[in-house]
Amino acid sequence: MGILRAAWVPDDDPEREWQVAADLAVSWVEQEARAQDAAAVLVLNAFGAEQHVPVLRSFAQRHSVTTPRAGRDRVGSGIGPVLAYVPDARTLDFATGLARNSSLAVVESVGLLPLGGWAAHLTALDLTRPGGESPALDDRLAEALDRLKFYGNNAYGPSFDRQQATRVLSDLHSAGLLDREVVISARAARGVSPAGLDRLRQLISGVKIR
C-alpha cells in the first residue's frame, strides 16, 4: 500500500511567507496524526532548516525529525504522517518511503523540485485552497507515466529501457503533453529513485520540447 492521503503547499505565491506555508502543512499533518493516533515526522534536506521557521521549530519539539542522511533509525517504528519541508528529489523519495501506509504533506520549493505533477498524480489536497484537490493528470499522460515506470525499474540504465522511454517521451511531445517538470515530479510520486529522475531529465532533454 502506498500513501493514503497527500497534501501540499504549492510555491506559487511570491508574497506567501515560508512561515505561513509551513503553518498550513503543520496543521494538516497534526490533524492527520490525531486521526491516526500516530506520531508525526518532519523530514528535512538537512538538520537546522527548522530553526529558521518558528512553527517548524515548535513542531520538531513535539515530533521526530530526520533527513535522508540520518535515515529511518532516528524515527523508530510505527511511523505516521510525514511533513516534507521544501524537499529535493532525494528527500522526497525518502519522505515517501516513511509515509507509506500513512499521510504525506509537502511544502514545495520550485527552485529545488517543482511538484505540480506529484500533486496531480496523488490528487493531493492544495492546502492554500481548502477543499480543493489538485487537478488530476490527463488520462493520456497518466498512461504514458505508467509505461515510463515500467521502463524505469532499473533507473533507465539499460539501453533498451532508454530507447523505449524516449519513444514514450516523443509520443508525449507529439501530443503536446511533454511538460518536463510535470513528468519528473509525477514520476517522483511513483517511487522513481533520484538517479532515475536524473536520467529521465537527460532523456527529456534529448526530445524537442515545444
Rank of each mutant, 00 (worst) to 15 (best):
R180D: 05
L112V: 12
H52E: 15
D11C: 05
V107K: 03
R187D: 02
D138H: 04
V182D: 00
T128R: 13
N154T: 13
R140C: 02
G131Q: 13
R100M: 14
A119G: 00
P130I: 11
L169A: 10
V53F: 06
Q164R: 14
S103V: 13
F160C: 06
A142S: 12
D139E: 14
R210A: 14
L125S: 12
L169C: 03
E15W: 14
R190A: 02
R69P: 00
E143I: 04
R162W: 06
L172H: 04
R201L: 12
F47C: 02
F94E: 01
G152V: 07
V192G: 01
A165Y: 02
R201Y: 11
T91R: 04
P68G: 01
G206W: 10
A21I: 01
G78W: 05
Y151T: 12
P81C: 06
V55F: 10
V20T: 15
V55N: 03
V41A: 10
N45F: 00
Q31E: 15
A6D: 09
A33Q: 11
R90W: 08
A186T: 05
N45C: 08
L127Y: 03
L200T: 09
E15V: 10
A188Y: 01
T96H: 05
S27G: 11
A49Q: 15
V41F: 04
Q19R: 14
F150V: 14
Q202C: 07
Q61I: 08
T67N: 07
L104F: 11
A40Q: 10
S134E: 00
G117P: 02
D88S: 03
R210V: 15
V192E: 14
R187Y: 01
N154P: 01
R72W: 12
G196I: 10
V55G: 04
S58Y: 10
V86S: 11
R167Q: 13
A95F: 07
L42V: 04
I209L: 15
E17T: 14
W118A: 00
A33P: 08
L197F: 02
L122T: 00
P114W: 02
T66V: 05
P68M: 06
D13T: 09
M1L: 12
R147N: 12
R167N: 12
